[in-house]
Design a protein around this nucleic acid. Structure first.
Lengths: 109, 109
DNA sequence: TGAACGTATGAATTAATGTTCATATGTGTG
DNA sequence: CACACATATGAACATTAATTCATACGTTCA
């Protein structure tokens, strides 16, 4: 049974985020781990859209979209503007573009 | 029942990746959606490590690490170098750094 | 060749997550 | 106020995924 660590491995230990940070990071990146949410984010890249339009564009139920928008909203990736009967959603995070682009680059290779 | 789309919404439609692309993208980003894998990736940021050392550093079972390394391997995020009894893993993707950094920036705000 | 070590993997279990369905809340309009 | 429209949400169901356990495979060395 080996419980020790080589010197170099001890260095690696320092790079690893603590449980709280790692967990927050995982939770954040988890948001991008879903096809529906990715599509929603892409739809919102250039403009704000109301729930109904997103559902129509993605050809999905309003309820499903609404649930996913809640996830995005709670994680501050999108923001809402209410006007009349509608809720207009738009992006709320500057890193989204970057992450989506890096991801796309990866699968394009 | 509204089946039409406003002009601006039709533009949004063009940004949305097709199902295949969106699915691949989601699958790729899904890899980052787990605390264990994030820790492994951080551990490998500066150096290669064998399975046993990763398990020790993360204080987890060898089997769990091995399973996750397989996910990372299959998705080409890490590569293996076999030497003697050990398998040494290292990063295999230039976007990893960027994604982890963007994620960290987000949760730091 | 047998024993120890390192790694990989299949099966089972448990936990987390996405979608649907039904329904509630809220807003504008006749 | 009654009704249509837009959105939000709780519960149920189905699916996916992470970990553990047991074990197999591969390598080194006495």
């Amino acid at each position: 049974m080996k419980n020790y660590l080589c010197d170099y491995a001890q260095k690696a230990e320092k790079n690893i985020p603590d449980d709280t940070t790692a967990s927050e990071l995982a939770d954040f990146l988890k948001i991008f781990a879903d096809m529906t949410r990715i599509k929603i984010l892409y739809a919102l890249l250039d403009m704000e859209l109301c729930v109904h339009d997103i559902a129509t564009i993605l050809n999905m139920e309003q309820s499903a979209i609404s649930h996913q928008l809640r996830v995005l909203r709670q994680n501050k990736l999108v923001k809402v503007r209410k006007e009349g009967k509608s809720s207009y959603y738009s992006l709320n995070d500057s890193h989204i573009h970057e992450i989506l682009i890096r991801g796309y680059e990866h699968i394009s290779e």
